[in-house]
Computed example of a mutant assay.
Amino acid sequence: MFRLQKKSVFDPTRVTQLSWNPRAFLYKGFLSDEECDHLMNLARDKLEKSMVADNESGKSIESEVRTSSGMFIGKAQDEIVDDIEARIAAWTFLPQENGESIQILHYEHGQKYEPHFDYFHDKANQELGGHRVVTVLMYLSNVGKGGETVFPNSEGKTIQPKDDSWSDCAKNGYAVKPQKGDALLFFSLHPDATTDTNSLHGSCPVIEGEKWSATKWIHVRSFEKSLKHAGSGGCIDENENCPLWAKAGECEKNPVYMVGSEGSYGSCRKSCKVCSS
Rank of each mutant, 00 (worst) to 15 (best):
G99F: 02
L94I: 09
E97V: 15
V81R: 03
W91S: 11
P95S: 00
R87D: 03
S68T: 06
D118E: 08
Y107K: 00
S69E: 11
E85G: 01
P95T: 13
H121L: 13
Q103E: 07
D82Y: 15
W91K: 08
D83G: 07
A90D: 15
V136R: 04
S141W: 02
L94E: 08
A86K: 15
Q96P: 03
V136F: 05
A124L: 04
P115M: 01
R66N: 05
G144P: 06
T135C: 02
G130P: 12
E79N: 07
H109I: 13
M138I: 05
T135Q: 06
I84C: 05
S141C: 14
S68A: 01
V136L: 12
G130R: 00
L128G: 04
F120P: 01
N125Q: 14
T67N: 07
Q111A: 10
Y139K: 13
E100W: 14
R66H: 02
R66K: 08
Q103K: 11
G144S: 06
G130H: 01
G110W: 00
I102W: 05
H121Q: 09
D78S: 10
A86G: 06
G74L: 12
S101C: 10
G110D: 06
G130S: 00
H131T: 03
Y139S: 12
V136T: 14
S69H: 13
G70L: 09
K75R: 15
L128T: 13
D83P: 11
A90I: 07
G130K: 00
P115S: 00
D78E: 04
G129Q: 05
